[in-house]
């Protein structure tokens, strides 16, 4: 008899019950293909989400790095007639000394200026005979200084001094990195939407295939929430398992990804330190998305039924 084959314990005791008797999770029969496809979809989406997440974290770090390295220093240029330049330099240095947020200042000497100009004018430039502006390098403290205030003071006391705090150069780079990060987050969101759509379709199929089960459950007094739960639990668990696998594979891919070069954009791509914890949120989110999508689909079907 087939029932004997299903549960060998019955052959011994006769009155023994099926394991999991009365378990509300068993009221909906398992369907192989739907659960497999839900699992695979979740795994693939999670794998892609790991990459999008890595890109967003890395571009965020890149933006931070760029803005940090460039904002730690500033340059001051003094253009003045040769007779006044000495006095103005002294005045500027005095102003800088009394400006809070500046760690050190250094006047570039002629050799350094020559080295800066060499790529354009060659090594034999008679730099002494040119009325070159004087350059002062400013190293900021971590807190930075008040560039606007400094400019005002300079304008009144050393009209030939021009402050360049590198914001001009930094802004487009930081903006590029920020938009890259926004794009990556948008991709993560899109993956979430796509997963919700796929699970809604799978849940719709499952609900349609189990219409007789739903009818029986209504007949014996099950509330909508109970019926929906029988489906949401199943889809959430499948999505959780699938997404956990996909996330694991994605993280593994980053762990063994060859590092390209010492510096540059690709070096930063991946997870660092505590960043490795962020992809762990993907399976949890996937389960939540699956739960919400299935519940919405189930409630819609149930309400339409009567």
């Amino acid at each position: 008899m087939s029932t004997l084959r299903r549960n060998p314990l019955r052959a011994l005791g006769g009155a023994r019950q099926t394991p999991g008797f009365g378990d509300a999770g068993r009221v909906v029969p398992a369907s192989g293909i739907t659960s497999l496809l839900t699992g695979i979809t979740s795994a693939v989406m999670a794998f892609l989400a790991v990459f999008a997440l890595a890109l967003s974290l890395s571009s965020g770090q890149l933006a931070q790095r760029w803005s940090a390295t460039l904002s730690q220093s500033a340059t001051l240029r003094i253009s003045a007639p040769p007779s006044e330049i000495g006095a103005q330099t002294a005045a500027v240095l005095e102003i800088l000394r009394t400006t809070p947020g500046i760690t050190s200042t250094r006047v570039l000497d002629q050799d350094e200026q020559r080295a800066l100009l060499e790529p354009w004018f060659g090594p034999d430039l008679p730099i002494e005979s040119l009325a070159l502006p004087r350059l002062i390098e400013i190293i900021e403290s971590a807190g930075g200084f008040d560039a606007v205030g400094l400019r005002l003071r300079l304008a009144s006391e050393a009209p030939g001094a021009v402050l360049d705090d590198h914001t001009r150069w930094r802004r487009p780079l930081v903006q590029a990195a920020a938009s890259l990060r926004a794009l990556a987050w948008f991709s993560v969101a899109l993956i979430g939407v796509m997963m919700a759509a796929m699970i809604t379709l799978a849940a719709g199929f499952s609900l349609a295939a189990n219409a007789p089960v739903i009818r029986v459950l209504r007949l014996v007094g099950a509330r909508d929430a109970f019926i929906a739960r029988a489906f949401t639990r199943r889809f959430a668990i499948r999505a959780l398992i699938g997404a956990a696998l996909g996330t694991g594979l994605g993280m593994l891919a980053f762990a063994i990804l060859p590092v390209a070069g010492e510096s540059g954009f690709l070096t930063g791509l991946g997870f660092h330190g505590a960043g490795w914890l962020t992809p762990l949120a993907i399976p949890v989110l996937a389960a939540l998305i699956a739960w919400a999508a299935t519940r919405t689909a189930a409630m819609r079907v149930l309400r339409r039924e009567s």
Binding site: Q17, T18, F21, G22, D23, A24, R26, V27, V216, L217, V220, G221, A222, R223, F226
Partner: peptide
Amino acid sequence: AENVALPFVATG
């Protein structure tokens, strides 16, 4: 047996 007990299971 599970079918007969379903009204209990379905109402938690």
